[in-house]
Design a binder for these strands. Sequence first.
DNA 1: ACCTAAAGGTTGTCTAGGTCAACGTTATTC
DNA 2: GAATAACGTTGACCTAGACAACCTTTAGGT
Lengths: 157, 157
Amino acid sequence: MSLHADAPARTDLLLRLEQEVGGLVRRLRRIIAERARAVHPELQSSSYLLLAHVAETGPVRAASLVCHFQIDKGAISRQLQHLIDLGLVERTPDPADGRAHLVSVSDDALRRLDEVSRQRRSFIDERLGSWSPARLAAFVDELAAYNLALDEPDAGA
Amino acid sequence: MSLHADAPARTDLLLRLEQEVGGLVRRLRRIIAERARAVHPELQSSSYLLLAHVAETGPVRAASLVCHFQIDKGAISRQLQHLIDLGLVERTPDPADGRAHLVSVSDDALRRLDEVSRQRRSFIDERLGSWSPARLAAFVDELAAYNLALDEPDAGA
DNA sequence: ACCTAAAGGTTGTCTAGGTCAACGTTATTC
DNA sequence: GAATAACGTTGACCTAGACAACCTTTAGGT
């Protein structure tokens, strides 16, 4: 599609963007579900991203998860409960604030996430083997920039 | 993050990819919902993508929508029924196959989609005004390539 | 110190939207 | 002409986010 990379109307681009994102969502839904099951057979897909985030950032309170994932705190609460039920995260009272809790991933979960990390590498080697690391990195950067643009209500111009 | 675009492990890249895609999904969910409402106040977000696709490709049968969107035919059937109830698509028997129907968007829907197209442009001008058309096009191309890679079971390598 | 407001979480209810399976109808194939 | 398969609809079920009500704890104003 880089034939007329010159002056396709931006509206057309955004239409394609919508279509691609739509497709991406549907494909990723399946892939993430697989990966979640690899961590734990009963781990729900949406909770997998939550778990991965907590694993990356360390002990964190639910409120900041709400802020980061921009979904309802009720949903976060239930997903955390689910992760706790599976023994994948632990919740401790926040010493600095009696209302809050800190959640962190269990050693068990860390181990499992490590294994999945290995699977992830083999996956990407299969699917994106022809992408150079630079290309992949550039793509992720653009994705991040795009996300940021969508987030800033008054960005652009 | 292009500081060490040199040799970040691919696993790290894919982890970031997951995070970014997760964020993208959540943001787009909202944006597409807005756009759907702009077409018709009762139009559901998932049906919007369906509608846009039918508008682009012309009369199609449900089975090819199933194939394109890769979701259950039951879900497609219900979404089409929803679009018909709203008067946005029309269903006619397929002259070539008595089992099948052809769906196409109504004139009304085409008009509304046109209006939304205008809104889309103002949206993109606000949010992605600093992106050159070439940059945007390249991003969409990479997204499409990524989608394709995820789709081909034996791609890459 | 006290009362009020606000923030952290949990839970119930509602809805969207997907899967899976069963079914009726029409085509195709042998 | 019967068996098989494809198109589509429908029902039961499930995930998961939105919204609101609620309890607890903290923070602020007086």
